[in-house]
Amino acid sequence: MTAVKNLSFTIEKGNVYGILGPNGSGKSTTLGIVLNVVNKTHGDFFWFDGHTSTHDALKKVGAIIERPNFYPYMTATQNLKLVCMIKEVSEEKIEEKLEIVGLLDRKDSKFRTYSLGMKQRLAIASALLNDPEILILDEPTNGLDPQGIHQIREIIKQIAAQGTTILLASHLLDEVEKVCSHVIILRKGEKLYSGRVDGMRASHGFFELKSDNPDHLKAYLERSASFGEVKLENGLVTAILKEEMDAAELNRSLVSQGIVLSHLVKRKESLEEQFLALTENQANPKTP
């Protein structure tokens, strides 16, 4: 069983990267390999300049993977003290980091009494203890309620604003869209896309139109150089733009042609539709 194959990418300082992919696409496996908890069969990875051993590199990295793992019988402070000792950093940052994630008033409660959202926030505090150069977050909002999701995202943005490089794995598109500057899209362990998030939705959008005479409208649009594909379904014409054009301009030119519209909407394709389109195309290669 191959979880990840032929995947390669580089991340640069100061950006927020998203690894996006459906469940089981190899996100956690990829992170597991660079964090040295999953054994790789082939290939190599390097931390920082390439001269740092993984063991030393991990001390400059903060990472949380899937579920927060702490000793249930120990308090937040005791757990964080242990992490400090493992990372070989001083314990003075504990309170500061607990403050960031809003857990300072619960610092002496045992970990097992925490809610999932609090556990996840404690995990972030723990990952921040060594002021990491890179923060790796694997599905940090998984299983949280909307309020918890919001809190975590705010914390991530706050950390990103301070210039920490972040690598965030998620299967949620809007999460990546809201938080990340760059994205790597995975499907079944293979890379589908890698680049800027706004580069991914470089399309110009499309129009949804209705008219008394749809066939006439369709024929006109097909003749125009500004449009690519034009579809007519149940009286609704969908025309995909090949170049930028605003709705008023289209309306004006249609009226001058004697075509009167009863419905006109301009839409941007959502990231979600694009993501599905990207993964769809790879799943079923189009037959000629």
């Binding site: 964090l35 040295n36 908890v37 991990l58 990472a63 793992n69 702490f70 992490v83 493992i86 070989e88």
Partner: peptide, 10 residues
């Protein structure tokens, strides 16, 4: 699963 976290922590 603290073994995993210990290893990730360095």
């Amino acid at each position: 699963k603290t073994i995993k976290q210990n290893l990730i922590d360095g």
